[in-house]
């Protein structure tokens, strides 16, 4: 794989994970457990969709086949999507919603932090902006994990269940493939070993404070999102997200 190919692939991964998690969070609009939570969830979703747009715009320039950011987001099928499997998992109860957010936020925070020092200036610029937002996301989701984990008997039980359900999707966050390695070697993407170490360190720290037990490091993990092999959920997300753009292609006025 050439560095140019890896870069396009890597940008799509960053964009798609932001986009899909943002879309998942938007499903809670009008249905969140409290007004403050609704505002927070929609704010986080908005940040993620905005970041996705920045990554898509850069990806579109490099792919250079006439597709713009919107076409990359709304006209690709599930097997072309490169998002992490974790981000497409359903919202379920609030423990799962916040557990998913927390695992992603830790990964996102350390990834972006490293990308601010990327040898690719455009990436460093987008990441510097996104990191400020991701820091707030992580602060909030880690607080929720602690509050629920170290809360009542029921909140603890449900938060632990959420950790157990989601754990199988976390391996993908910190297991590098060829693309990740090419990016790291070029000084564009994060060092995979450091990312894994940072992710485990913070996850363990927060889960310990939350009186929760992480899964085993050698647990069997679902992988494949980065290569377009998704769980059954992604197709449904895209069907809803892409409906309008597919039904009225190239419409300029809604």
């Amino acid at each position: 794989m050439t560095q140019a190919e890896a870069l396009k692939e890597y940008l799509l991964r960053l964009a798609d994970s932001d986009m899909i998690l943002g879309q998942r969070l938007c499903e809670l609009c009008g249905k969140a457990p409290a007004l403050e939570e609704e505002m927070a969830l929609m704010n986080v979703a908005l940040d993620l969709v905005g970041q996705a747009r920045n990554w898509y715009e850069y990806a579109a320039e490099l792919i250079d086949d006439g597709r713009d950011a919107d076409k990359l987001a709304f006209r690709r099928d599930a097997h072309d999507y490169r998002n992490l499997l974790l981000t497409e998992q359903p919202n379920e109860d609030y423990a799962v919603t916040m557990g998913r957010q927390f695992f992603f936020d830790v990964y996102h925070y350390f990834t972006l932090k490293s990308l601010t020092e990327s040898s690719d200036e455009r990436i460093a610029g987008i990441a510097a902006k996104a990191l400020k937002e991701a820091t707030y996301h992580l602060r909030r989701s880690s607080e929720w994990v602690k509050r629920l984990g170290d809360g009542t008997e029921e909140s603890h039980r449900r938060m632990q269940e959420a950790i157990d359900i989601l754990w199988r999707f976390t391996g993908e966050l910190i297991t590098p493939d060829d693309t990740d390695r090419v990016m790291a070697e070029a000084g564009i993407g994060p060092d995979p070993d450091q990312l894994a170490k940072d992710w485990r360190g913070m996850v363990n720290e927060v889960l310990t404070q939350a009186t929760l037990t992480p899964g085993a490091e050698d647990a069997w993990m679902y992988m494949g999102g980065k290569h377009g092999e998704h769980t059954e959920h992604l197709g449904f997300i895209l069907a809803e997200m892409q409906f309008l753009q597919r039904a009225y292609p190239d419409a300029t006025t809604w």
Binding site: E36, M39, A40, N43, D47, Y136, R140
Partner: peptide
């Protein structure tokens, strides 16, 4: 602090 996120992206409640 009531919420880290307020009425717009730039505000907390």
């Amino acid at each position: 602090r009531v919420s880290e996120f307020g009425s717009t992206a730039c505000k907390a409640l």
